Simulated assay, not measured.
Amino acid sequence: MNPAMRVGDILVEPLAAAGATEGRTRIRELLDAVGLPADAAGRYPREFSGGQRQRIAIARALALDPSVIICDEPTSALDVTTQARVLTLLQDIQRGTGVAYLFISHDLGVVHEVSDSIAVLHRGRIVEMGKAHRVATNPEHPYTRKLQMAAPVADPKKQRLRRAERLELTTEELSSPGSRS
């Protein structure tokens, strides 16, 4: 987001580029859709928290009523509580609009939360693909297992065991052709 622009101008920019004329009304609708007050339009991005700025980015993505939104690491810089709120917002928007997401993340737990299907890429190739629950909870490929084990767990003992197991997966195991599922 351009820090010199007010949120309203950031949101109206794609509308203006598309020749839309409903500007201010649409800005209020977009802010409402992502749970921000109407007065947010007159403020600068720096006046918002990370989670609120992510909501502004989501509102901008929704401005032209897309059928697909690409979400590239949309929660990676957020704390766990804020991540959960943003994921819930994305799911609510999807239920309300029918928009599809292409969700890109290294956090298999987050991807599992919002996806019906998962494709895991390693070095530019799909190494595992399937229903989200199966891939996230019972991965077959070593790289997918490594992603699964990278997710933090609350129990420090379990976390240490996961870390040790993850580190045992060698580069050779991850890149060998025979490891593909």
Rank of each mutant, 00 (worst) to 15 (best):
M1T: 10
N2M: 14
N2D: 12
A4M: 14
A4S: 15
G8R: 00
G8D: 00
D9Y: 08
L11E: 08
L11W: 06
V12Q: 10
A17K: 05
G19C: 10
A20K: 15
T21W: 10
E22T: 12
E22N: 15
E22P: 06
G23W: 11
I27L: 01
I27N: 03
R28I: 13
R28W: 06
L30R: 00
L31N: 01
D32N: 03
A33M: 10
V34H: 01
V34W: 04
V34R: 00
G35N: 00
G35Y: 00
A38C: 09
A38Y: 09
A38Q: 14
D39A: 01
A40E: 00
A41M: 01
Y44E: 05
S49I: 02
Q52P: 04
R53S: 00
I56H: 04
A57W: 09
A57K: 08
R60N: 05
R60L: 07
R60M: 05
A63L: 14
A63I: 12
D72H: 13
T75M: 01
S76Y: 00
S76K: 05
T81C: 06
T81Q: 15
T82L: 07
V86C: 08
V86A: 02
L90H: 01
D92A: 04
I93N: 00
R95Y: 06
R95Q: 06
T97N: 10
G98K: 06
G98H: 08
A100H: 06
L102G: 12
S105V: 06
H106I: 02
D107Y: 08
L108K: 06
G109T: 01
H112P: 03
V114P: 03
V114L: 00
S115R: 05
I118L: 03
I118F: 05
L121R: 13
H122G: 13
R123W: 07
R123S: 14
R123Y: 11
R123N: 13
G124E: 07
I126T: 09
I126E: 07
V127P: 01
V127C: 05
M129I: 13
M129D: 13
G130L: 03
K131L: 10
K131M: 09
H133L: 14
H133V: 12
R134D: 15
V135T: 08
V135R: 03
A136G: 10
T137L: 14
P139Q: 11
E140Y: 11
P142S: 09
Y143Q: 01
Y143D: 04
T144C: 11
T144Q: 01
R145H: 11
K146H: 14
L147N: 09
Q148K: 14
Q148W: 12
Q148S: 14
M149C: 03
M149V: 10
M149G: 04
A151W: 10
P156C: 02
K157F: 07
K158F: 07
K158Y: 09
Q159A: 14
E165A: 12
E165Y: 07
E165S: 12
E165P: 04
L167D: 13
T171R: 11
T171Y: 02
T171S: 11
E173G: 13
L174T: 00
S176D: 14
P177Q: 10
P177G: 11
G178E: 13
G178H: 05
R180I: 15
